[in-house]
Structures are given as C-alpha cells and as structure tokens.
Simulated scan of single mutants.
Amino acid sequence: MPLLRAALSWNFVLATAICASLLAQLIKVLLNLFIFHRFIAERMWGAGGMPSSHSATVCAMVVATGRYCGVNSPIFAIAAVLSIIVMYDAMGVRYETGEQAKVLNRMFTEWMDQGFEQFQLPHGKKLKEMVGHTPIEVVTGAALGIVLGFAMPMV
C-alpha cells in the first residue's frame, strides 16, 4: 500500500490509468485460466480479449483527470477525446485487422497443405488474430476503468 500511495501522490492520473491497465490484463489471465483451464502468458501483455485493457486504461484516465483537474478543464476534454478515439479504434480498425488475420492464416494453411511453400510466413508463424475488441469487451473494459477511476483514493 505504501508504494501505491507514493505513486498516487506522485501522479494520480497516471497511477490510476496504469492500475486499470494492469487489473484488466490480470483479469484476462484469470478468465483464460477459468475458461480454457490453462495459463496463457501472452494474456499478461497482449492486446485483444476480455476486458479491453485499452478501454480500462483510458476510461480510468478520464475519470481520474476529471476528479483531479475538474470536468471543465481542457485537460479533461483532451483525455475524453483521446479515450473515444482509442475505444473506437479498438472496436473498428484493430478488430477488423484481427478478422483479416484469421482469413489470411486460413488461406496460408490451405496453400501450405497444397504445397505452395512460397506463401509461408517467415519461420512458419501465423498472423496475430487477437488485436482488437468486440463492443462488449470495450464496454466491459470501460466500466472497469470508470469504477477504478472513482475507487482510487486521491492522496
């Protein structure tokens, strides 16, 4: 607790946003343990999945900024606009990138099965498919960030 208190007194907004990000990533790991019954290390830092750590981070930042600077401040406005862009991007462009990666990976696998080795990705890797979020993942992450933003004690 002394470390958290020191971080909050150093920079309340940043510490709150980082805590939200870490909590969201921890929840992803725990959900994977519960659902798939296995530890997936990549879930500790990887993008995509439930809940959206991007949404949790920016929503916690917005709430903390509003609490610290006031909702009428230009800094709050900047934080709010940034959070909208990040969440829109997570559901839109990044989600579609993941969907395209699924199709391309399937195509590469079929081509390899047919003997077209020239279409193999370097080192036999696959394109990352989990890079974006569904709307429910974004909303859940946003709710997590908002709750944490209000729950963090102002020092």
Rank of each mutant, 00 (worst) to 15 (best):
R38N: 11
V63D: 08
P74D: 11
G141N: 09
M112K: 15
K126W: 13
F119L: 13
K126D: 12
A64Q: 05
A60D: 05
M44F: 01
W111G: 01
G48T: 08
I40Q: 12
I18L: 15
G66M: 02
P51H: 04
M107P: 03
I78F: 09
R106C: 09
V81R: 00
I40R: 13
G124D: 07
S52K: 01
V29G: 04
M50F: 04
S83E: 07
S55K: 03
T134I: 01
I85L: 10
L104F: 15
S53W: 05
C69H: 13
N105F: 12
M112G: 14
E110M: 13
P122L: 02
W111N: 10
V62M: 06
V62I: 09
T65W: 07
E110D: 15
G145A: 03
A143G: 14
A17N: 00
R67L: 03
G115D: 08
L22I: 05
A60Y: 04
M61A: 14
M61D: 00
R38V: 06
K102W: 05
M87D: 05
A77P: 00
I35T: 12
L33H: 07
F76M: 07
A80M: 08
H133D: 08
E110Y: 12
S55E: 02
G141L: 03
E117M: 10
L121D: 09
Q114K: 14
I75H: 09
L22P: 03
L30Y: 03
D113N: 14
G145I: 05
L33A: 09
N11W: 11
V131E: 14
L104P: 03
I40K: 13
M44T: 14
F12M: 07
G92H: 02
S21N: 15
R94W: 00
H37N: 14
Q25R: 14
L14Q: 10
G149I: 00
C59Y: 02
P135I: 06
L82A: 14
T140V: 15
I18D: 00
K28M: 04
V81H: 01
G92K: 06
I78E: 03
G132I: 06
E42M: 07
T57Y: 04
E129A: 02
E110Q: 11
I75A: 13
Q100C: 07
I35V: 09
F39E: 12
N105K: 06
N11A: 07
L23E: 12
M87T: 08
G115E: 10
A17P: 08
P51F: 01
H133S: 00
I27H: 12
V93N: 12
I84R: 05
A60N: 02
S53C: 06
S73Y: 00
G124S: 04
V93F: 10
F116C: 13
A60F: 04
S52P: 13
L31H: 13
